[in-house]
Design a protein around this nucleic acid. Structure first.
Lengths: 204, 204
DNA sequence: GCGATATGGTAACATATATTACCAAGTCAA
DNA sequence: TTGACTTGGTAATATATGTTACCATATCGC
């Protein structure tokens, strides 16, 4: 009933945090309310009072994490830097965010539950990756207009750069095939992707 | 007990097909043995006789689909063609395979169940994408040695090309954000990726 | 034709778990 | 202090479902 400041409710936050860890680790179906209570303490009654039911809790968690990704992915801009450094800095920041185990777990959850929660996919596209994509497309469009690069379709070029960035990293992480890269490796991938991309769209 | 030709057992194949559809559509936890039997007919007893238990059935399905992906992703070679056409043909074939709803569903399953089935990820990496990656790396290495392109690390370049190819397509599909692309769009993506990649690794 | 085996059909069993109920203890305003 | 409200703790309820059992029937080798 208290809609004023749900973010300041410590009980609610503790439940969200513990439940998020379990959902991310074990998935929706394999996380029981009992397990959540066992980790956070207290009574099941509180969960049902705050979130209604299990799917309500899940949706609240997803919403919280979507806005978190949105906040952390913001602030890419560094207008004073030349294009290569600007792109590489963006690439590094984005990779660092994406490669986090928590982010990987969220993506796994969204992928596996998107069928049962149709709004989930849209929520994450609009709040998460879309921001980066839009920002990137703008930067590319400006650079193209300034004659720095050649990009007939800035949006498609932005998608290509993002794909180039992720290369196989995201898939290997999602499939549990490799460990989280350290900062050095992230820097290498970001540098290599920026180099190939800029060379690929250069004006001969 | 009959290990000779399990592929020729029509009962077994019918169960595998029906169960695969349900697993892909609803996930592992949300697919019940009863639902499988309701679709394929017959008795649960048969499932337990053939596969032991639910996880045995799941693993058999995953193994079957992994080998299927392996078979269908093979045969990329077209040695007589020049490099751009060769890469573009590879890209088209791979995208067509990857974008299939069935393949997308399999990836979703692997991503969400990799935690509980540690061999799953490895199985798909070794049988599926790795083949394409290895083939691609070889082609790139040969082209680099012939001076056609510049690629200090053919394996990394292959990963980049794959990432460029998928761009955001695979993610949007996995998150249920868009429909399966038709052949025209696949051809466009394959062409654009090949163009940017070859330009990006060109010898100035 | 006959017996072993596989399969269909149904029910039983055990367990997990989402959800609700109930009561005691604590909290906080007036 | 008092009383409304929230929370903790435990148990009860309902249901879903993996797994096994049982029996009748069909299939297939001999």
């Amino acid at each position: 009933m208290n809609d004023d400041a749900p973010d300041d409710d410590p009980r609610r936050n503790a439940i969200l945090t513990a439940a998020a860890e379990l959902f991310i680790e074990n998935g929706f179906a394999n996380t029981s309310i009992d397990a959540i209570i066992e980790r956070v303490g207290g009574s099941k009654r509180t969960i049902y009072a705050l979130f209604g039911n299990k799917t309500g809790l899940f949706e609240a968690i997803m919403r919280a994490h979507a806005t978190r990704l949105f906040d952390e992915s913001g602030g890419f801009d560094a207008k004073d830097l030349p294009l290569p450094e600007r792109l590489e800095r963006f690439a590094t920041k984005l990779l660092r965010l994406i490669a986090q185990p928590r982010t990987i777990g969220i993506y796994r959850l969204v992928a596996s539950e998107a069928g049962r929660f149709p709004e989930l996919g849209r929520l994450f596209r609009d709040l998460g990756p879309r921001q980066g994509r839009v920002w990137l497309a703008q930067v590319i469009a400006q650079a193209a207009q300034a004659g720095e690069i050649k990009a007939a379709d800035p949006d498609a070029a932005a998608r290509q750069f993002l794909g180039l960035l992720r290369s196989d990293l995201l898939f290997d992480l999602m499939l549990g095939l490799r460990a989280t890269p350290d900062d050095d490796e992230i820097a290498d991938i970001a540098h290599a992707a920026t180099t190939v991309f800029l060379h690929g769209v250069s004006v001969d």
